[in-house]
Nucleic acid binder design. Structure first.
Lengths: 298, 298
DNA sequence: GAGACACTTAAGGTGCACTACATGGACGTT
DNA sequence: AACGTCCATGTAGTGCACCTTAAGTGTCTC
């Protein structure tokens, strides 16, 4: 089996279409198609089959795409061992992160990497929990978050590492009738007007949990992504909202109160493809991120 | 890291010289030399250094050659999984075996493989115990033997599987003065004239053990490899000898007696490179050999 | 010092993977 | 039903990676 063919199948499993693979690997779809045929000739059986407008992996293709991860990991481990013979890790690490985590973690990361041979490029996005895993195809490290479990939904096949645990507090206008309480409960807040997040976004699962616990529906007057915008809405008395404790800067007109009686904390997690996680440069950056994350959580 | 470069380094670690690698891979030494330079360029550091007339792996080269085994194994595992999707194992398996083991195992193996898609080619040789491991570079399966441990000397890095345990008996001329005993001890036989094997050959370690146990030297009138020749020598009353119990056919003029008081048994072992051992065809043949070996030992 | 051996370098040929471009099927829209 | 979009594939031509041949250099043995 040719490793290039295996990589192609892995990419195809990740991205779904030949065209997407071609774009990602800087080739024309024709080249990818030809390589795929070569792989099938070598395997002696079909690896893809037509499906709608595109193709779908056959059972054999799926098997190879899975095995490809093991091969890529073994290969990356060799490279990592070689890198340890060098003086210091060198190279470029691409990070994709959700803004509220990047804001805290990445500036200090870049400061600490100053003068080392490591270069970091940052891309930011705010997506649904289940989309973080998909982004690992395009970034060495994806910094995402989850409320529910150890790692974001759909990232079981990826290397994951927890960078921080961060409580979610309820942000209220200073003149709100609940603003003087020490902490809040689902029963107290479920009747309020909320500034929420789009469906499928981690914070929403907390609201859903409160709906389930109390049996009442929560009114979401808006569904927003950017926490700055959310803060501004709260400051103007338009509603209350969940905001992460450490990454929210104090702001005039807004107070935050802990929420008890429901699990209200997010886990900030770094995701990488298993083979990518073997790279010395990537491991170094992950170590730094974990350290910065631990400090940021006090 | 390019897998071809890693394979080259693994071969180089196995065979020692570029020329040997070139011969084994059906290329000219020049091609190998050029590929090695390409690998060094990619690794960014020297992988070999001049040593005498030839070259020697550097620390980095050694590291890569070891990692290459893991990569090749992962790759072979993928291929093996793919092969399980096929109806039955297909392909050619090359076996190198010592004659006394091949005689018992291989004819039945070939008979059982009749009609299957598996082809077996056999090469036979009788070498010192420490040479079996080296031969695994040229054969998918090497059938060797050892007296001392689990696997022949120097084969720790190889996949090994025990096919049979076979006691070694003392072969005597029928009219020998010890020929009517039920069994023999080192003290009884150490003064006899022996037909031995070359130094370093497994059977010799039994004689050496007897020399150590009794403090006396054993007289070896000949050092021979082929057991048929040894039997003939014994039948003519020229000396006594150690012969394996199951693979020695009864012969007029010779009787065999168990030897007690010293470990006198050989272990027949199949050796394969770890990646080769993953191949479905190879695994099938190994399973058959183990089964045949178990039956042959009653 | 001659010869054998192991590796290296230079020059030239071959095959394979790529690009560019054209074709054709599947799906959604109007 | 007609059209536009998306996706995959076939053909022809090009460039590079890898090979071979040929002619070296350095090292060991006799």
């Amino acid at each position: 089996m040719d490793v290039r063919h295996l990589d192609l199948l892995r990419e195809l499993a990740d991205r779904g279409t030949l065209t997407a693979v071609a774009t990602a690997t800087h080739r024309t779809p024709s080249a990818v198609s030809q390589q795929l045929r070569a792989a099938e000739r070598e395997a002696g059986m079909p690896l893809v089959e037509p499906h709608g407008r595109g193709v779908r992996l056959t059972r054999a293709g799926l098997l190879l795409s899975e095995g490809a991860v093991d091969v890529a990991t073994a290969l990356a481990r060799v490279r990592a061992q070689l890198d340890t013979l060098r003086d210091a890790p060198v190279g470029t690490v691409t990070i994709g992160a959700l803004p509220s985590a990047a804001e805290v973690l990445v500036p200090e990361l870049l400061a600490r990497l100053e003068g080392s041979g490591l270069l970091v490029t940052l891309d930011d996005f705010d997506v649904a929990e289940s989309d973080f895993a998909r982004l690992a195809a395009d970034h060495d490290i994806v910094i995402g978050h989850t409320i529910t479990g150890d790692a974001p939904e759909g990232s079981a096949h990826l290397h994951h590492r927890t960078l921080a645990e961060e409580p979610l507090d309820v942000a209220l206008p200073v003149d709100h009738h609940l603003a003087r309480r020490r902490h809040l409960t689902p029963e107290l807040v479920v009747g309020e007007r909320w500034v929420g997040v789009p469906e499928g976004y981690p914070f929403d699962t907390v609201l859903v949990a409160m709906e389930n616990a109390t049996g009442r529906r929560i009114e979401r007057i808006q569904r927003l992504r950017d926490n700055r915008v959310v803060e501004a809405m709260v400051a103007h008395g338009l509603g209350i909202a969940l905001l992460p404790r450490f990454t929210t800067r104090p702001r005039a007109g807004v107070v935050s109160k802990p929420l008890v009686g429901v699990r209200a904390a997010r886990r900030i997690v770094a995701l990488s493809r298993r083979d990518v996680a073997q790279r010395v440069a990537v491991r170094s950056v992950l170590d730094l991120l974990a350290d910065i994350g631990a400090r940021a959580s006090r």
